[in-house]
Computed example of a mutant assay.
Amino acid sequence: MVDSVILYRAPSTVVETDELGDWLESRIEGSVTVRDRFLDVHGNDELAERFAQVRVRSPHDRETGNTMLGTVRYEERALEDPEREGGVLYDGVQIQRALNAALPADERGLETLHLPILDRAIGTWGSHDGRWHKRVNVLGQPALVSVPGLYEAPAKPESYYKEQQRHAFLSGDTPPREVLENQVDGEFLIEDDPRTTDALKGYALQAYHYLETGEAFCDREGCRLFNAHYHEDLIDAQLREPLFCPDHDRVYGDS
């Protein structure tokens, strides 16, 4: 049984971690504590090289890693100053293992869920289609929640990709993301979206729910425990009423 959750801040993002923690504590049986950034609290000299080892090389290359000195130095700088990190995708499962190993031995038990909010993009390998897929979260211990993943992992409306192709056809290059976000109608979250904290509440609860019950996600669209693959579904699940399907409302709802 999970009797406590430790949330870790991501100070380089817009996430209000204290608000996220208060919401989560109001839904679960255990207590929720907020700590500073995981990599500051539990960082060690090995993490920079571990991060370099699990960098995704290309979308269709299963092998990861680049431990050349320059890459390790980059990771060292990113650990010290997270504002300098960006544009890199990491193997989420391997990051999870690295962060688990960084936990003190007496904090690795499953009665306490560690939940770092990350300012890095994480992915998992899809053996069914031979490519990497960005993720919002990776469940387990610790459970990872990626803020860039919230914006980038779910597919955007079809009109977004049509405009992207049109721009590429006319100009020969891919338009900046900001240009597309301003030109395309449709509902999707963008970087530093003011709805970020609200949208991540369900993903934090998914992490608790998995460790508590062994159930990964809810298969009912519109439930905060639903694993949305499209931005429209994400918004429907995380930002609209009702909060939960009937089954999960009995566990996590207000009634």
Score class of each variant (00 low, 15 high):
129 D>L: 11
204 A>G: 03
9 R>K: 15
209 H>N: 09
132 W>E: 10
184 V>H: 07
68 M>A: 13
134 K>Q: 13
137 N>S: 14
225 L>I: 06
179 V>W: 11
96 Q>R: 15
128 H>F: 09
127 S>V: 13
215 E>F: 00
105 A>G: 07
63 E>I: 08
123 G>L: 05
224 R>C: 04
71 T>R: 13
39 L>M: 12
176 P>L: 08
41 V>I: 15
35 R>K: 14
108 R>M: 09
135 R>P: 01
223 C>Y: 08
180 L>A: 06
133 H>F: 14
197 T>E: 08
25 E>R: 15
92 G>P: 04
134 K>E: 14
77 R>L: 10
109 G>K: 05
205 L>I: 09
36 D>I: 02
50 R>Y: 06
241 E>I: 00
236 D>L: 12
161 Y>P: 01
29 E>S: 14
249 D>Q: 12
31 S>C: 09
12 S>T: 13
26 S>F: 05
54 V>R: 09
121 A>P: 04
231 H>R: 03
32 V>I: 12
212 E>W: 04
116 P>T: 07
160 Y>E: 03
122 I>T: 07
224 R>V: 00
181 E>W: 03
67 T>H: 01
86 G>Y: 08
139 L>M: 07
76 E>W: 05
250 R>S: 15
103 L>S: 08
253 G>W: 07
74 Y>R: 13
25 E>V: 11
96 Q>E: 11
100 N>F: 11
41 V>G: 10
123 G>A: 13
164 Q>G: 00
68 M>T: 09
147 V>L: 04
24 L>F: 06
16 E>Y: 01
74 Y>I: 02
40 D>P: 00
135 R>N: 06
122 I>P: 01
63 E>N: 06
35 R>H: 13
25 E>P: 03
217 F>N: 11
13 T>D: 06
4 S>Y: 01
153 A>H: 07
180 L>Y: 08
80 E>T: 04
170 L>C: 04
133 H>I: 00
111 E>H: 15
7 L>H: 08
132 W>Q: 06
60 H>A: 14
74 Y>L: 11
45 D>L: 12
5 V>D: 09
34 V>G: 05
51 F>P: 05
159 S>R: 12
187 E>I: 03
116 P>L: 00
130 G>E: 13
80 E>A: 14
192 D>G: 05
161 Y>G: 01
92 G>C: 10
209 H>L: 08
167 H>A: 06
60 H>G: 09
115 L>C: 04
132 W>L: 07
94 Q>W: 01
21 G>W: 06
108 R>P: 01
192 D>R: 14
83 E>F: 07
238 Q>N: 06
